[in-house]
């Protein structure tokens, strides 16, 4: 395998990590909540795609239209019922989202009785080659979807009224409140959008992986690594952070040992946390809750 090939593999993998992280990062950056159940929202997205296929015979790329809004609603409900009452209690939030993780994972396990599902797609399986580099359609779609999502989210935050209020709330809750922005509702909407993005990731990943209730755990720590690497609340951070983690994993897997690839990006993650806690694209001020003020 030559370098170019590893590069492509890494970038496509980065697309997966980026897409899984982008919603987490939005939530993390804006509401400052560590949502341990984010991987389970991705998992719900995958099972949503399966459900759409099993009952309606839909291709996952069409099921997106159903699953993403559904996850938006799930996110709104979760935020209203669980997280909003716990604002300003970061330990309890960790705890509550972990409880949510256990509930969602095991609820799916109990319903499916542990049977592994796969979601067929007419297009996803195609591969095409450029030279001796082979690319699967499903992975390319994810990469493109991430790119499109990142641009769309960026424009949404910059141009729309809701987007602007989200940014205002991120920068200064107090001031935003004084300006008449409904901070709580903005948080709820943000959490909904973050969950919808997790759903999008889930649907698009469903043709690639065999579905299992615990699959979210494969993504969540990678997603945290991406978020910390890229920088809190930064759309570009999630995008490039995902790419970096994907590339590191691909190269380390090839040159060092595939079994150690995770350990290697975790180490990078730790080093970034310690050396540059704001991340590569972190906005100044976004880390204020998490870190000591600088002297």
């Amino acid at each position: 395998m030559d370098i170019l090939n590893i590069l492509v593999v890494g970038l496509l993998l980065g697309g997966i990590y980026g897409l899984v992280s982008i919603g987490l990062n939005l939530i993390f950056g804006v509401i400052r909540i560590v949502n341990f159940a984010h991987g389970e929202l991705v998992m719900l997205g995958m099972y949503g795609a399966y459900l759409a296929y099993a009952t309606l015979g839909l291709d996952p790329y069409i099921a997106v239209l159903l699953v993403v809004p559904a996850l938006f609603v799930v996110g709104i409900i979760v935020h209203r019922l669980v997280l909003q009452p716990l604002h300003a209690e970061s330990n309890m939030q960790i705890f509550a989202t972990f409880g949510l993780l256990i509930i969602l994972q095991n609820a799916v396990l109990a319903i499916t009785r542990g049977e592994g599902f796969s979601v067929p797609s007419k297009v996803a399986g195609f591969t095409f080659g450029v030279g001796d580099i082979r690319v699967t359609v499903s992975r390319l779609v994810i990469f493109l979807a991430l790119t499109a999502t990142a641009i769309a989210l960026h424009l949404f935050l910059k141009r729309t009224l809701i987007g602007k209020s989200i940014r205002a709330v991120t920068q200064d809750r107090q001031a935003a409140r004084l300006m008449g922005i409904n901070v709580e509702r903005t948080f709820t909407i943000t959490f909904g959008i973050g969950s919808a993005l997790a759903g999008l990731a889930g649907v698009l990943l469903s043709p690639i992986y065999t579905l299992s209730p615990g699959i979210g755990g494969n993504f969540i720590l990678a997603a945290f690594a991406v978020v910390v690497l890229g920088g809190l609340g930064s759309v570009a951070g999630a995008y490039f952070g995902g790419m970096i983690v994907g590339l590191v994993e691909a190269f380390a897997g090839f040159y060092i040992d595939p079994e150690l690839k995770q350990a290697i990006w975790f180490l990078i993650f730790l080093v970034v946390l310690i050396v540059r806690p704001t991340g590569l694209f972190g906005q100044v001020g976004a880390e204020e809750v998490g870190f000591r003020e600088q002297n």
Partner: peptide, 16 residues
């Protein structure tokens, strides 16, 4: 090295 981090960040780093 992680004691510089606070709250959720410390939790995530130790989780790592």
């Amino acid at each position: 090295p992680t004691f510089r981090l606070k709250g959720s960040f410390f939790a995530i780093a130790t989780l790592a």
